[in-house]
Amino acid sequence: MTSPRRTLLKVVILGDSGVGKTSLMNQFVNHRFSREYKATIGADFLTKELEVDGEAITLQLWDTAGQERFQSLGVAFYRGADCCIVVYDVNNAKSFESVENWRSEFLEQTSSLNNNAFPFVILGNQIDKDPSKRTVPLNHALSYCKNQGGNLTHFETSAKDGTNVSIAFESIARSALENSSHEDYASDLTGSISLLNNTNESGSCAC
């Protein structure tokens, strides 16, 4: 079975522990929400094939454990990303305050040449909870994204009931696509040379 030409896009998901990174990814890829969730150890990895503006793409989602800000997973985990998602919990002000830390950590790790152009998608998750619990108002988040001046897009989502999840990921895919060099990979994507270079060139232990 040969797949059509697909573009491979790497997306890294960051954010404090417990904000729902893995759940968002599961909702997007498998349309499922599990109450029996567990803390991500190290990293988790999922792919999803979709079409954006007529272009067949494979999104490679790299989900990271939420505490490793100072526990480098190695540059290889971040390098070559076409888009970075930073998740916070709208009911947890601290997780929102961390967004900027995650963003600068990411830029530092990847030493991106054009920091302002690199696309970040900021997701405020867990909007399904009782509105009285909310501690991060929508306009706070919006003004943060505006004031940063970079390429930031913002959505509020619920990994639990699926609200805005597919819209957000479509936007993520589009941002990643715009950012990528639009190289096409002929064969099966997950086997593309690009990924191998990304993961191997620094040696697996890039600590």
């Binding site: 150890i41 190290g42 990293a43 990895f45 190695g74 290889a76 099966d188 997950t190 086997g191 593309s192 990924l195 191998l196 993961t199 191997n200 697996s204």
Partner: peptide, 11 residues
């Protein structure tokens, strides 16, 4: 398939 151990065996 682009799968070195670090992608599936970390945990």
């Amino acid at each position: 398939k682009g799968l070195p151990a670090k992608l599936y065996a970390f945990p």
